[in-house]
């Protein structure tokens, strides 16, 4: 999703030091419906929970480079519902995921065929809240083929769909994604169209789909622009996410944007919808989101272990002072 895009822009921008003040958003709860935690550190989990993020969705994606065999997919999907979910729970964050064959790797047809056989094993696992992220990248014939096959799978399974819209040729790619979803008989209300911008949002909303916005530095949306979008289009069927991954991204994008919205005078109920409630409503159609779990996951049991492996090992302080040069 990332890397070496717009390097000049990245370096040219002056450093704006308006830091996030957690007091501005204290008491608010956030749901980040698109974040790739396997690419993030425990420090990120810590900062996220401090900023009020209580639940997340990790869409299945690629690894920054193409996989060469089906077992890599299997292990990855397993890790999303296994180790990563456990890791998240140790910080008190409820972890969900979507499972799918991403658009980039759909282009390796021989492998894609094998992955399609693997998917039915995973889509009904606990906490899988949709098929995703799927859709177009280069908008090739192979991408279209596996997008359609997975839409059929989603329809049969009764699961929401999380659509990745392309970076390049976005407007056409977004329109085409929606056309195809409709053609396959999916209800727009079960489809979350991700990575919108000013050019795509109107049509997505007009056609009854959910419009997700990724607040990602330099390449996608900035959050000042996001504030303007909410001012113009309101909060119905709009949600924000970070899509944080191994690129220069920000796992606090949702709370930061909420803080900025508050400063900009957007009403609290609207902020709650776009940064929390709408994601639950949309992905909750899977039947897999129980809000009570947001609280039970908070009761962090330090002795809990996943396959005898624990992050918070016995006796270790769960909090460390990052400013100290002493590491105990």
């Amino acid at each position: 999703m990332c890397c070496n895009d717009n390097i000049q822009e990245r370096n040219a921008g002056e450093r704006d030091q308006s830091a996030l003040d957690l007091n501005d958003i204290s008491g608010m709860r956030f749901f980040d419906p698109h974040i790739h935690m396997t690419a993030r550190t425990t420090d990120d989990y810590q900062a996220m929970v401090d900023a009020g993020i209580i639940a997340i969705i990790e869409p299945a994606f690629w690894l920054g480079q193409p996989r060469t065999g089906v077992d890599s997919f299997k292990d990855y999907y397993s890790s999303l519902i296994g180790w990563e979910r456990f890791r998240s729970s140790q910080f008190g964050i409820k972890h969900y995921c979507t499972i799918g064959l991403n658009s980039r790797e759909a282009n390796n047809e021989a492998l894609a065929e094998q992955v399609m056989e693997l998917l039915p094993q995973f889509i009904f696992k606990e906490g899988v809240v949709g098929i995703g992220e799927i859709g177009f990248d280069d908008q090739t014939a192979a991408e279209e083929k596996y997008f359609r096959l997975q839409l059929e799978l989603a329809k049969e399974a009764g699961l929401p769909v999380q659509i990745h819209t392309p970076h390049r040729d976005k407007k056409k790619g977004t329109q085409r994604s929606m056309d195809i979803a409709i053609e396959h008989g999916l209800s727009p209300y079960s489809v979350i169209v991700d990575h919108n911008n000013e050019e795509t949002v109107k049509e997505v909303l007009d056609r009854g789909f959910w419009a997700a916005f990724t607040i990602y530095p330099f390449t996608k949306m900035g959050n000042e622009r996001m504030v303007e979008v909410v001012k113009q289009y309101g909060s119905e069927r709009i949600m924000i996410n970070s899509a944080a991954d191994w690129g220069i991204s920000d796992p606090l994008a949702v709370p930061k944007t909420a803080a900025l919205m508050k400063k900009s005078g957007i009403a609290l109920p609207d902020i709650e919808l776009v940064s929390f409630r709408n994601a639950i409503t949309a992905f909750g159609q899977s039947g897999q989101i129980n809000e009570n779990d947001f609280i039970t996951v908070k009761n962090i049991d330090q002795s809990q272990k996943f396959e005898s492996n624990s992050i918070l090992r016995g006796g270790q302080q769960p909090r460390i002072d990052k400013n100290s040069i002493i590491i105990k």
Partner: peptide
């Protein structure tokens, strides 16, 4: 085509810069 999907700058440049293969062999879409 797979190389063009890469996010690694030097790999992209190996395909894009002074390489006559893409212009010769790729479809219009690619």
């Amino acid at each position: 085509e797979e190389g063009i999907r890469s996010n690694i700058g030097t790999v992209l440049e190996a395909i894009m810069y002074h390489n006559p293969y893409p212009a010769h062999a790729l479809s219009a879409a690619a």
